[in-house]
Simulated scan of single mutants.
Amino acid sequence: MAAKLLLWTIRVLALLMVMVSILPMIPSGQWWVRIWEFPRLQLTWALILPLVLLVVHGLWKRWRIEHAVWMALILAVGGWQLSHILPFTSLWSTEVPTAEVPPGEAQATLKVLSANVDYTNDRYDEVLSMVRREDPDLLLLIEVDHAWAEALTSLDQHYPSRIGEVRSEGLGMVLWSRFPFQEQEVKHLVSERRPSVFVTLDAPGTGPVRYVGTHPVPPGLRDRVASNDETDERRDSRVRDAELILVARRVQQDADNRWIVTGDFNDVAWSDGTRLFADLSDLKDPRRGRRLLSSYHAERPLWRYPIDHLFVSDGFHLVDLERVRVPGSDHFAVTATLAMAQKDRAKPKASAEEQQKAEEMVEEGAEDAAEHGVSSTPSG
């Protein structure tokens, strides 16, 4: 009886792992489908349990063909999950080259820090101390509400340039810069509630650098439908995906310039949406070939995912990449020091299929925003 119960436990666990591994392959924006793109690392570790139980059962009741079938299935699922994770380890080649500065030579660098401070967090002075200690040239803070804006006014003395939008409920965003802005704009790409900042920096010794800070809506977020205030439903991923695609299009249209895009994407580094964003924009992820740098949830080590991102165009090499604790926040900050390098003139080369998929994502995102009464005029 115990052996039979153990075998059925193995069967159920293995089938559950197969099911949640297959779900993200379904072309759906439903949050309960897309959410399974997040815990690939956790699911890989979880596969150890049915694998160990299978070995125990095989030794106990003699190895049979069924054991070999389940073993092959578990290993195949583990390999599938690892194929998404391994590019973010030192086993893979890097996308952004490491900066090599000859001894005694100065090189123009740019330090960027992006952090979701969490609008429910009230440890203002500690966060200010963290910012001053890191001393970035570009500082993007997300979820800046009116209390945070008031607490951060001293930053205006250290950074001559500032742009953003202060909003409640975790929707605000402010960018501070040590360098002057040649161009600056707050855009509402899909949802009128969610700002993104677009600026062109006049970086000394470098020329113009284009920068985008963004914070798309997370899938699974509870939200009221404007047409029915009594209805509380979870958002799917369509608005998030559309917003990222519209940022990618902006980069794609001006590929000759240097670009930096940072923010809380509410999407993991290995997802289809993030990879499509990278393919369309031809931006590079400095984590690839180095480390995962999971940023959320800061207080739950077993449930952390890489959802705070920093992408750069060619024309940048990496000096340093770190994860920094933000006092009181559920996110870590991501900080990178970038060195200027030769910029080539290659254009992004997304396939026709990827372009079509991007078009569909934008249309679906606009529809979802309209359904929730928060639509903005999408622009590429």
Rank of each mutant, 00 (worst) to 15 (best):
R304Q: 15
L292S: 11
L82S: 08
I85A: 07
R235C: 09
R34H: 04
L53I: 11
L280A: 07
V55Y: 02
S376Y: 09
P160H: 05
I163C: 03
T206F: 02
L246Q: 12
R300D: 15
S161K: 06
A298K: 14
A203K: 10
Q157A: 15
S295Y: 04
R323H: 07
Y159M: 04
S379F: 05
T9Q: 06
V334C: 11
R300G: 14
W270S: 00
D272M: 11
G164T: 05
P204I: 10
H215K: 08
T377P: 10
P204M: 10
S196T: 14
V131G: 00
N266K: 09
W92K: 14
Y305D: 06
A14E: 09
E126I: 01
N121C: 10
T274G: 05
W8K: 15
Y211G: 01
A2W: 07
T98D: 09
E192W: 02
S227P: 07
Q355A: 11
R258P: 01
E230I: 03
V251L: 00
L155K: 13
L283I: 11
P160T: 08
L318T: 00
R288W: 05
L139E: 03
N228K: 13
P97N: 06
H146V: 12
H331C: 06
T109N: 04
V362Q: 00
L59W: 04
I163Y: 01
S295C: 12
H57C: 12
L175P: 02
V131Y: 01
A99D: 05
F38Q: 11
A339P: 10
L43G: 05
H297Q: 12
Q355G: 08
A269Q: 04
S329L: 01
V20C: 13
K111Q: 09
I163N: 03
A115P: 02
K111P: 07
G79S: 10
R304C: 13
N228A: 13
L171V: 05
E367V: 05
W148R: 08
V334D: 02
A76C: 04
V312L: 12
L51S: 02
L141R: 00
L276Y: 06
V197I: 14
L23A: 10
Y124H: 03
T262L: 05
G78P: 06
Q184F: 00
R224S: 14
D223V: 14
W31A: 07
A151M: 13
A99N: 07
P218K: 11
Q253P: 01
H146S: 14
T94G: 09
M17A: 14
S379I: 10
W63R: 13
N257S: 15
R194V: 13
E185Y: 01
A350D: 03
V12F: 08
V112K: 02
E322K: 14
V18D: 00
V55G: 07
D125G: 13
E185G: 09
P160Y: 05
T231P: 07
D122I: 07
R40N: 11
D285A: 04
Q253K: 09
E100V: 10
L15V: 12
L221F: 03
F181N: 06
T377W: 08
W259I: 00
S313C: 04
Q157Y: 12
P103F: 06
S237I: 03
W70F: 11
P24M: 08
T274H: 03
S177D: 07
E100H: 13
A298Y: 11
V96F: 00
I10D: 02
L75F: 00
